[in-house]
Computed example of a mutant assay.
Amino acid sequence: MAEETAPAETTPPVKTAPVKTPMQRALPGLLIAGSLGGVGLVMVSLLSLAPPPVDDGSLPREVAAKAQDAPTVDVQNAGAFVLAATVGPGGKNVPLTPARLEAPPPLAAAPVVPAIPRAKTKATKARPIRIKIPKIKVNSAIGSVTMDAKNALGTPPLTKPNQTGWFRGSPVPGEAGPSIINGHVSTRTGPAVFDRLRELAKGDQIYVYRSDKKVTRFTVSGIEQASKTSFPTKRVYENTSNAQLRLITCGGVYNKTTHHYTDNIVVYATLSKKKG
């Protein structure tokens, strides 16, 4: 992503569905956008039996003195922390921390409803067009992002700071599997669409509107802030038998030299209502 000048950016384990999602079939060795509000990329390989090591593609880190309001875990001192066995619920005045890499996605916070059947043909395939998150006053158009020739996942244009990006290799929100939507925390013009993403907590509602007139409601089940050097690839991308949503942006300490943030903030949510 483009360089930025400000330090504010961009269930128990479920049984794996027998049919792999297009994302799983198409993206071994995926490079995902880790520095959603900066220049860097988080490189991840998709879903092997053991979580692979992750390289965020940045230069050796010289942590900048100024941090976001968000607390962060210094990876160099990671041995001093005992990571939780599950993703935390988030909430007011609750520090966001990472969970163990092998931990599953958090338990659903509301009764789960069946996924919307996947379209059989391209002509009938829906796409997400808008996301609303009442708690943090998000009302954003959803564009699409894809991988480039270098297998790097794109992000919304910096000229559209209030637009989010749905990864077209992931399921349409409401269909079975984890749908991925990313967004900037900030651009040169100031705070962007996911500036307040870290404020979400278990039980909060996320609404995704689709081109087929269906409206899907997801309920947040957990939120974490994880170092880009230990991105929870399996937890974020592993296939699920129900419909889930992942929102991703940046957090942690901003490095003015490399224009990277140290961490990612990941929100986990599960489909709890649908209409239309």
Rank of each mutant, 00 (worst) to 15 (best):
V185R: 12
G40S: 13
A70T: 11
K275N: 13
L245F: 11
H259D: 15
T124E: 14
K228L: 13
L31D: 02
P111L: 11
A84G: 05
G183H: 07
P104Q: 05
F194G: 08
G154E: 03
G40E: 01
E3Y: 08
R100H: 01
H260R: 14
T86A: 15
A50L: 06
K160R: 04
F218Y: 15
A149W: 07
P52F: 00
S140M: 08
S227I: 08
S170T: 13
G90Q: 11
P71Y: 07
T121I: 08
V87T: 07
C250N: 04
L96K: 09
R196K: 15
G190E: 11
V112G: 11
V42K: 04
Y254F: 15
P98A: 05
G34D: 00
V267R: 11
I116C: 00
V113C: 02
A84D: 15
D56R: 06
T72K: 10
Q24N: 00
Q205G: 00
D195F: 09
Y237F: 15
A243L: 01
R235W: 07
L101N: 07
F194D: 03
N182T: 13
R198S: 10
C250K: 02
R100T: 09
V54R: 03
P52Q: 12
G34M: 07
V87M: 09
A85N: 15
G169F: 13
Q163F: 04
L27F: 03
R235Y: 10
S221Y: 05
K275M: 09
K150P: 00
S35E: 10
P105W: 02
V172M: 02
S241N: 14
T187K: 08
A6S: 15
P157M: 09
G40W: 00
G91C: 01
L158G: 11
S58T: 07
V236C: 01
T72Y: 15
K20F: 04
